[in-house]
Simulated assay, not measured.
Amino acid sequence: MAGISSARLSEERKNWRKDHPYGFYARPTTNTDGSLNLFVWSCGIPGKKDTIWENGVYPLTMEFTEDYPSKPPKCRFPKDFFHPNVYPSGTVCLSILNEESDWKPSITIKTVLLGIQDLLDNPNPKSPAQQLPIHLFLQDKDEYVKKVRQQAKSYPLAE
């Protein structure tokens, strides 16, 4: 199975380098020996323009298993990332990343990253992962906006 997942990840890397959405990055990490680790990717998701998330590029780690693409990658923002659908551990709660829900082997790294970008500004209140962000999102929009904009300053756009 590792051969299938490695081949698929190599192909996705090649496709990403040829064509990826503006402002995003996604690249395999490097092992201590200098070789590429296709199973752990370092990614960045820009906040959409004209949203409270703009002006930030949010770091995300994608971890793949040897069962990929049969099973989805684990996607994590930094610990304590402020968002209603991100667990305190940083793990993203999104239906396309759930193998019992909407995951399909045809979903690509690009699709996942675009889906997470969309989730940033469109949280799913039916699937909360953290108490404070969902509470503020539903009960105190001004404070929610303030906290998101504050967080964006921690992840500025590269100039």
Rank of each mutant, 00 (worst) to 15 (best):
E54C: 01
F82P: 02
Y155N: 05
K79E: 15
T91D: 15
R13L: 15
E66K: 12
S106H: 10
T91S: 09
D118G: 01
F77E: 12
D19N: 13
L114F: 06
N15G: 01
K141P: 00
T61D: 13
K14S: 15
K104P: 00
K14L: 10
N15A: 15
S127A: 13
R27T: 08
N98C: 13
P73D: 13
L120Q: 05
V92A: 04
T29G: 07
V86C: 11
N122T: 08
Y155K: 05
E66W: 01
S89R: 11
D142P: 00
D121W: 02
L38N: 07
W103V: 01
W16T: 00
F64I: 01
G90I: 04
W41R: 06
L120C: 02
M1Y: 12
P125R: 07
P21S: 13
S154A: 08
I134M: 15
P78L: 13
K104L: 11
Y87Q: 12
S42K: 12
I134A: 01
N55T: 00
N37T: 09
L94A: 09
K18Y: 07
R76S: 14
Y155A: 04
Y87E: 15
N122S: 12
S89D: 14
H135W: 10
Y22M: 04
K104S: 15
P73A: 06
N122F: 05
K126A: 14
D19Y: 07
D19Q: 10
Y58W: 12
Y155D: 09
P73K: 10
P59G: 10
P123N: 12
E159H: 07
P21D: 15
L60R: 02
N85K: 08
T61A: 12
F137P: 01
Q139Y: 05
K74S: 13
V57G: 02
L120H: 03
M1C: 06
